[in-house]
Simulated scan of single mutants.
Amino acid sequence: MEITRLSPDDESGCAAAVALEIAVAKVDCPDLVLATPVGKANQLRYGWDLNPGRQHLARDADGNLVGLLGLHYPKYENTDQLWMDVWVHPDHRDGDVWEQLIAFAEQEAQTVGRTMLGLNTFDTERDIALATGHGFVQKAVEVNRKQDIAGLDWEVVQKLYDGAVEKSAEYELVRVLGALPEEMLEDMIAVTESINDAPTDDLEIEDDVYSTERLRAYEEAQAKSGTRIYRLIARNKETGALAGHTIIGVEGDRPEMAWQHDTAVSRDHRGHRLGALLKAGMLLWLREAEPQIARIDTWNAESNNHMIGINEQLNYTIVGRFLDYQKKL
């Protein structure tokens, strides 16, 4: 089997990679939304915040694409780790392709000096058996949920928003489309780092570390990928302190699809229903600004009961469960 790195400039390779992912998802998680070929290329060029991962194509002796390996090299924290996802075409699941891709990833980790491997899988008997059989230990469960905008009850959204407004009278909402204003940038570091209070279960990971440079890198990566960023910020009316935010990214080449990027409330501003205020307020904004959106997807730790409770009030339903594993080398 030949394993080669996928270039973002390889249009046919990106299209083939997406086709393989679609074939896998059709079996393992039919409602999963995957990147378009353009989106795949942008992931490889820019990543989430200008730290793009790598993808490798696995072809058999006849040149057929049988597997895909995604590798992510944390840059700002957890620099001892290499995270991966493995996709094997349903017609080639005798275990050999998976074995070779895992071996490739382990060799890459050793080459670049990473001592911990992370693995994301579907919650299937096959993936569980393969992961545990290779010494990986399950550390967390993530759940992908979707929000069907056509089925959303806007009266419920408005009621949730109005109720949150009553409990948060000392706060106002600030709408930011695209890059943060320079005067907000420094204060947004602490707000963004509030995401570290979200549960990570048993994962051996460090807290996310943010800086003005990293926030700008995120904005640049999203803009270059064609994603429109909507950010709603809760601000104390009296002190001007930034208390929380939520971000939605709308795809440029598929504008009916949007993604929840982040929702966080600073610890010293909790107890005012700011999470509900931000989530419901964002939906009301998007109804005005992006009426073509048909679906918004979000990911949470299965143990994040507080955020899941808000999401379920807003018509989010489960797409699939995914397992996070780690293995020390």
Results as ranks from 00 to 15, higher is better:
Ile293Tyr: 05
Asn144Phe: 09
Glu170Cys: 12
Ala164Lys: 04
Met84Phe: 00
Thr115Tyr: 10
Leu277Glu: 01
Val112Gln: 12
Pro291Gln: 11
Ala41Asp: 11
Leu329Ile: 15
Ile318Asn: 10
Asp197Ala: 14
Glu251Tyr: 08
Ala150Asp: 11
Val157Lys: 04
Gln222Glu: 12
Val33Asp: 15
Val141Arg: 11
Arg231Asp: 10
Glu170Pro: 04
Asn78Gln: 02
Glu2Asn: 15
Thr36Leu: 01
Gln313Ala: 09
Tyr210Trp: 14
Val209Gly: 02
Glu2Gln: 15
Gln100Ala: 07
Asn64Val: 15
Asp9Met: 10
Asp80Met: 07
Val27Glu: 13
Gly113Thr: 02
Lys159Asp: 15
Ala217Gly: 05
Gly135Thr: 03
Met257Gly: 04
Ala169Gly: 09
Arg5Thr: 06
Ala301Ser: 15
Leu6Asp: 00
Gly226Trp: 02
Trp87Lys: 08
Asp202Ser: 05
Cys14Ala: 11
Arg5Cys: 06
Ala217Lys: 05
Thr212Ala: 15
Ser303Glu: 12
His272Pro: 10
Arg114His: 04
Val24Lys: 01
Glu288Gly: 08
Pro199Ala: 03
Asp31His: 09
Ala234Arg: 00
Lys328Cys: 13
Leu283Trp: 04
Ile248Val: 15
Ile310Pro: 02
Gly178Tyr: 02
Asn300Phe: 02
Pro255Thr: 12
Ser303Cys: 08
Arg231Ser: 14
Gly133Pro: 02
Leu20Glu: 14
Tyr76Ser: 14
Gln292Met: 14
Gly320Cys: 14
Glu142Ser: 14
Val18Ile: 03
Ala105Ser: 04
Gly178Lys: 05
Asp85Val: 07
Ile189Phe: 10
Ile128Asn: 03
Leu57Ala: 12
Asn315Trp: 09
Met257Ala: 12
Pro37Ile: 04
Gly95Lys: 05
Gly95Pro: 06
Gln313Tyr: 01
Ala221Trp: 01
His134Met: 12
Asp28Tyr: 01
Leu180Trp: 05
Tyr171Thr: 11
